[in-house]
């Protein structure tokens, strides 16, 4: 599945902007963008999956929480996630992600170290949600 995002050029690091009809969809798009910066996700099948819940005090915090958890699980288990389903209700996100092993898979961008709060945006618009996030690479 291809999802749309824009790259935000940054001198030292890399950022993305994306949107969604719901907060959950926007977070899912941001998750896709995060992994797509590192790997060509069009070549990553969904052969293994994880599911978890994240809670936070605000939409930006929920975004950071979900992306950071995915990054952590990816690095611990050597998995590249390529498919995402995020459902959000009351600042609680139920996340399902699927992908395949990272072993032997070539990088197309530098590994992302972390999700930063710098210039972080996660806010409603008239017709959905928009997100901007800068990654430390």
């Amino acid at each position: 599945m291809t999802r749309h995002y824009d790259i935000v050029a940054h001198t030292a690091d890399t950022g993305i902007e994306t949107r969604g009809n719901t907060l959950g969809e926007a977070i899912g798009n941001a998750a896709f963008a995060m992994f797509d910066l590192m790997y060509d996700l069009s070549t990553v099948p969904a052969t293994m999956s994880v599911a978890f819940d994240s809670t936070a005090e605000s939409p930006p915090d929920l975004l950071v929480e979900v992306l950071s958890e995915l990054l952590l699980r990816s690095e611990i288990s050597d998995v590249v996630f390529s498919e995402f389903r995020v459902q959000e209700a009351g600042m609680c996100a139920t996340v399902e992600a699927a992908g395949a092993t990272a072993v032997g898979r070539g990088l197309r961008g530098p590994p992302i170290k972390a999700v930063t709060y710098h210039r972080l945006t996660c806010e409603p618009t008239g017709d959905g949600w928009k997100i901007r996030v800068i990654f430390d690479v």
Partner: peptide, 9 residues
């Protein structure tokens, strides 16, 4: 993948 670079700032 579908993306395009935005201005630096």
């Amino acid at each position: 993948m579908s993306h395009r670079p935005l201005p630096t700032a």
